[in-house]
Amino acid sequence: MKLKTLIFKIILIFFLGLIPIGVYANNRDSTFSFKATLLLPDYVKLQYAGGIGFISPGLGYTFLKHRLDITLFYGYIPSFLSSDDLHSISLQFTGKIFKFSLKKDIDVLPLNIGFFLHHNFGEEYWVTLPSHYPENYYWWSPGRMGGIFIGGEIRTKLLAHYTPASGLAFYFRVGSRGLYLTSAWDNSEIQFTDILELGFGIALYR
């Protein structure tokens, strides 16, 4: 228990450490080469909940003039929250439909939609059906799931004036995943709220 908590802290600090690296890499005076800056992520995120981990650090790139984000999250659940600790990664694709300026330095993105793939690590979370089962014995993969979400974002220039970061964004998301949706399908007994995954987070852009 203690060791696992320690590992969790180390991992958290490691990913928090990525934030200043990402920020300073954008500084013109930095010693990073052009190629290295090109490969550096456009932002780092820290997401709470949303079904992909407790507090999940992530990094990613923006495409199509900030209209599409692709983020890779590492999700960890320490054993004080579950019967055993859990490790997973998820790839989240977020499309940003609308954007308007609320006032100087504050942009509102009221409708973000997206989907995600979630991969759980561990022998019991297999992706391809193990060989001791006949074909199609189970139709789903406990190790890899997919889901959809909808959310919103507020993008600010916080930290932009006194650090090399270009801005800080706050976002929330509410989604569900295939295995939850199929469970609720055709069942009045399962409440819609039971299958929702709520989450929120911050994104620091370089």
Binding site: G50, G51, I77, L81, L86, S88, N120, R177, L179, L198
Partner: peptide, 20 residues
């Protein structure tokens, strides 16, 4: 902050495999 978030456990899902 982590303690506060931990108490929000019921509303926010962390993982489909979380057992509590």
């Amino acid at each position: 902050f982590i303690l506060i978030l931990q108490s929000c456990d019921d509303i926010f899902d962390y993982s489909p495999y979380q057992v509590d």
